[in-house]
Simulated assay, not measured.
Amino acid sequence: MHARSDGQGRPLAFELTGGEVSDYSGADSLIDIPVTTPCCFLADKGYDSDKLREKLLFRGILPVIPPRSNRKESIFYNVQHYKNRNRIERMFNRLKQFRRIATGYDKTRKSFLAFLHIAAVKLWLPSFVNRT
């Protein structure tokens, strides 16, 4: 499961890929969604590829991806920006609080993605409710 979130850690889009597929292959469709262009792309080491970095820089998006340990030459990334990645991890944690998503009860991709969207709506609801 790949997800794109906003600066507050709320989900914007999801992409499902198989478990054997590399992480950076799922990033292309998330970058292409018609939402405002982000200034940074925060991701873990699984998304470290020269092709993805090149594509992000071509679109004017700063890749904040730590290099893999087996890279021959180390690539600089902004450590201060990378600290904000905890918001994304917290978003995944909140999504996995829904038992159906955490355990993967659904047999089909379509139904699992539908419940991901329902969980995302539930995460967005507090942003729209008047708390006074």
Rank of each mutant, 00 (worst) to 15 (best):
Phe41Gly: 10
Lys51Arg: 10
Ile31Leu: 15
Pro67Met: 13
Pro34Cys: 12
Glu20Ser: 11
Ile31Gln: 05
Tyr82Asp: 03
Phe58Tyr: 03
Leu56Thr: 00
Ile65Met: 07
Ser29Thr: 10
Ser25Val: 02
Ala43Trp: 08
Asp48Arg: 00
Ile31Glu: 12
Thr17Leu: 12
Thr37Pro: 09
Gly26Gln: 06
Thr17Phe: 13
Asp48Ser: 09
Gly60Asn: 08
Cys40Ala: 10
Arg53His: 05
Tyr77Glu: 02
Asp50Gln: 08
Tyr77Gly: 02
Leu16Gln: 13
Asp50Pro: 03
His81Asp: 09
Lys55Trp: 03
Tyr24Val: 00
Lys72Arg: 10
Glu73Gly: 15
Ser74Val: 04
Lys72Glu: 15
Phe76His: 13
Arg59Pro: 05
Glu73Asn: 14
Ser49Gln: 03
Arg71His: 15
Gly26Ile: 00
Gly46Ser: 02
Leu57Trp: 01
Ser74Gln: 12
Asp23Met: 05
Arg71Trp: 13
Leu16Arg: 08
Ala43Leu: 04
Asn78Asp: 15
Pro38Phe: 15
Tyr47Phe: 14
Asp32Gln: 10
Ser25Arg: 04
Pro66Ala: 08
Arg68Asp: 06
Phe58Asp: 13
Leu57Ser: 08
Leu62Tyr: 04
Ala43Pro: 11
Pro34Met: 04
Asp28Cys: 02
Cys40Asp: 11
Val79Gln: 15
Ile65Gln: 11
Ile31Gly: 06
Leu52Ile: 00
Tyr24Gly: 00
Ser25Glu: 09
Gly60Asp: 14
Asp50Leu: 05
Glu15Pro: 01
Pro63Ile: 02
Ser49Trp: 00
Cys40Met: 08
Pro67Trp: 07
Val64Ile: 09
Asn78Tyr: 08
Leu16Lys: 08
Ile75Gln: 11
Thr37Lys: 15
Ile75Asp: 06
Glu54Asp: 09
Ile33Pro: 02
Asn70Gln: 09
Val64Met: 14
Pro66Ser: 09
Thr37Gly: 00
Asn78Arg: 09
His81Asn: 05
Leu62His: 10
Ile65Trp: 02
Lys83Ala: 15
Val21Pro: 10
Gln80Asn: 11
Asp48Ile: 00
Cys39Pro: 04
Leu42Gln: 05
Ile31Asn: 05
Gly46Ile: 01
Ser49Lys: 01
His81Val: 00
Ile75Lys: 12
Asp32Tyr: 01
Thr36Trp: 04
